[in-house]
Design a protein around this nucleic acid. Structure first.
Lengths: 239, 239
DNA sequence: CCAAATAGTGCCAAAATGTGTCACCATTTG
DNA sequence: CAAATGGTGACACATTTTGGCACTATTTGG
């Protein structure tokens, strides 16, 4: 049995039995007393809180709150999660957000350093505001899943983004803009792009975008986006 | 150099160079060709997608999308994250939500089985609705961090919850109710409790609750909460 | 107070696992 | 065809993990 599996078995047994002696654990996982004690020490180093009582009637107890999950996430998944929660906490007051932040900070810490830079840069393009109550939300659609990869490439690689857009009157056009910001007016999300042909900013509702595509480009420049909306809320984690 | 560090070094090198031969990697990380090949095999087992071309001009290429983070999260952190995103996706259309869901599903899969049950049960108490635009949001406060642990204990352990409540007119009272649901009318969150003294449901804005405390109790019963609001959005993951 | 039950530590030899070398195979490219 | 590449198997050697033992410290029941 590998070390990892044995650790898992020890944690499972402790969780099931509530309290257990070292010898009982050793029998359970088929290892020696000495090894179990070493494992307990290792688990404590990993952050598990294991309380011990010596003497008759004593034993080990695992604090269930200290249990750790070891989810493995891909980079796009991390981006999506962080953006979701960043938007959420900006859009309204979120209960339990200290804990969510702590979780996100841990996830972020596990990312490779340059990806963190990308992430910060991407989140820096998020702007949050308040939707005016007069908006018509009846035709709100689902956003296409290709959006995030295309946006990531375009925003981080300073490329144009090209997409099909269906406007409020249902007209379908193919657009190409410099991506400058993402604007959230809950529950609506907008892409703010500079349209070089028209020489001005344009807003595009993300749920009306389809077939997005990043297009390499040499003329891209960052422009100052004239917002009255609040800026990115992702400040707590920017330590 | 430990195995883990060497694996990290290999991943870093592959990411930096784009493509690299086994021999170059071996030189880089100071290990033998054989060991590097074994490491590559191990990394593939871990989920890294590493493309290889044999022959002249060949080499190894790491698919950057396949990079994994190995964040370790505690159970309360997972709860907080899942609740946040569940609320978010219900409150509005969330872009990139397929990816966020995939990430959450992975996190959930890493939780111990009984914690998943608890989580489902807890999320089942979430109700989402639309806030009427007439609400006064000016005095919205921060929710206290003790909320989640107290709620978790009370909802899952079928206990009463006791707390200080400051009502709309600023009056401070100590309340004790059977927790029945959590209602989200973005950006406001409410605790819906059955007040046994008054024999009726009461809504409490979470940002007005302080010093929450779960109180063991034998008379608790689940009641049907008469909502016109939508029910829990957390259905996609309830496979 | 004593004896039994418990957690915890240091040490060392034995067992298990990881590593390097070498020979070899398969595929691709100039 | 020869060179450059990824990939596998076998085996000796290096490193790490494990088990056993002796020991200490603390608690509890009698």
């Amino acid at each position: 049995m590998t070390v990892r599996l044995r650790h898992d078995a020890i944690v499972r047994t402790l969780r099931r039995n509530g309290t257990s002696t070292v010898d009982a654990l050793a029998r359970e996982v088929g290892a020696s007393r000495r090894t179990v004690l070493r494992d307990i020490s290792a688990l404590r180093d990993e952050g598990y809180v294991i309380h011990s009582d010596v003497g008759r009637g004593g034993g080990l107890q695992l604090d269930p709150q200290s249990m750790q999950t070891r989810a493995k996430l891909s980079v796009p998944e991390v981006f999506a999660l962080l953006i979701s929660v960043a938007a959420m906490r900006a859009a309204g007051n979120l209960p339990f957000s200290e804990l969510a932040d702590a979780g996100l900070a841990k996830i972020e810490k596990a990312l490779p350093a340059d990806k963190v830079k990308d992430l910060r840069s991407f989140l820096g393009c998020l702007h949050i505001g308040q939707l005016s109550p007069l908006q018509d939300l009846s035709d709100m659609g689902r956003m296409v899943p290709e959006l995030l990869p295309a946006f990531e490439t375009a925003f981080l690689g300073r490329q144009f983004i090209r997409f099909d857009y269906r406007d409020a009157r249902g007209r379908q056009t193919r657009r190409q803009v410099e991506p400058q910001a993402m604007l959230i007016l809950p529950p609506l999300w907008y892409l703010v792009g500079w349209d070089p042909a028209r020489g001005d900013f344009r807003h595009f509702r993300m749920d009306r975008i389809s077939n997005p595509e990043a297009v390499p480009d040499t003329t891209f420049r960052r422009r100052h986006v004239p917002f009255d909306a609040d800026v990115c809320p992702y400040t707590d984690l920017q330590t």
